[in-house]
C-alpha cells in the first residue's frame, strides 16, 4: 500500500527537498545551490533527474544562474516559498475540510461555529 500522496516523481521530490532547505534557512539567500551532479551523488539518482528538479526552481525564479559558476538562491526565495506554501497547504486543508463536512452533512454555519470554538479555546490556553 502506498501513502495517500502517492509517489511523486523523483525530480519533484528533489525540488521539494531544495525548497524545504530554502524555507528552513539551510540554504541562505545568494548561497550556491548543489549542482545536479552533487544532488545525483547525494541521493543516488540520475543527474538528468536532478537537473530537472533544479529546473523547477529556476523556472519559478527561486534560484538564479551565474554563468560558469552554477545556481544561487534568489534573495526573495524564502519569502516566495512561504507565500506559496501558505496558499497551497491551506487550500488543500480547506478542500479536505469541505469534503468531510459534506460527507457528515455539516452546513456552513455549523462549520464556522466549530472553527470559532476551537479558536477561542486556543486563545484561552495561550493566556
Amino acid at each position: 500500500m502506498h501513502d495517500v500522496d502517492g509517489e511523486k516523481p523523483i525530480y519533484i521530490q528533489i525540488a521539494d527537498w531544495l525548497e524545504n532547505a530554502i524555507i528552513d534557512g539551510t540554504l541562505q539567500a545568494d548561497e550556491k545551490v548543489y549542482s545536479q551532479y552533487q544532488l545525483a551523488e547525494l541521493f543516488t539518482i540520475n543527474p538528468a533527474t536532478a537537473g530537472k528538479g533544479l529546473t523547477i526552481l529556476l523556472e519559478s525564479e527561486l534560484v538564479y544562474k551565474k554563468r560558469g559558476l552554477g545556481m544561487f538562491v534568489s534573495p526573495d526565495a524564502q519569502e516566495k516559498l512561504r507565500a506559496k506554501r501558505k496558499e497551497r497547504t491551506l487550500l488543500k486543508l480547506v478542500q479536505d475540510l469541505l469534503n468531510e463536512a459534506s460527507l457528515l452533512n455539516i452546513g456552513t454555519d455549523e462549520l464556522n461555529q466549530i472553527i470559532e470554538k476551537e479558536r477561542k479555546q486556543r486563545k484561552g490556553n495561550q493566556t
Partner: peptide, 27 residues
C-alpha cells in the same frame, strides 16, 4: 534501478510499449 535511470524502454509482447523519460511515464 529506477533512481539511476534517465529513460525507460518498456518491451511488451515483443514490441516497444514505451520509450521516454522515467518521470513522464509516471506522470
Amino acid at each position: 534501478m529506477k533512481d539511476v535511470l534517465e529513460n525507460l524502454l518498456v518491451i511488451h509482447r515483443k514490441r516497444i510499449r514505451y520509450h521516454g523519460s522515467v518521470s513522464d511515464l509516471q506522470e
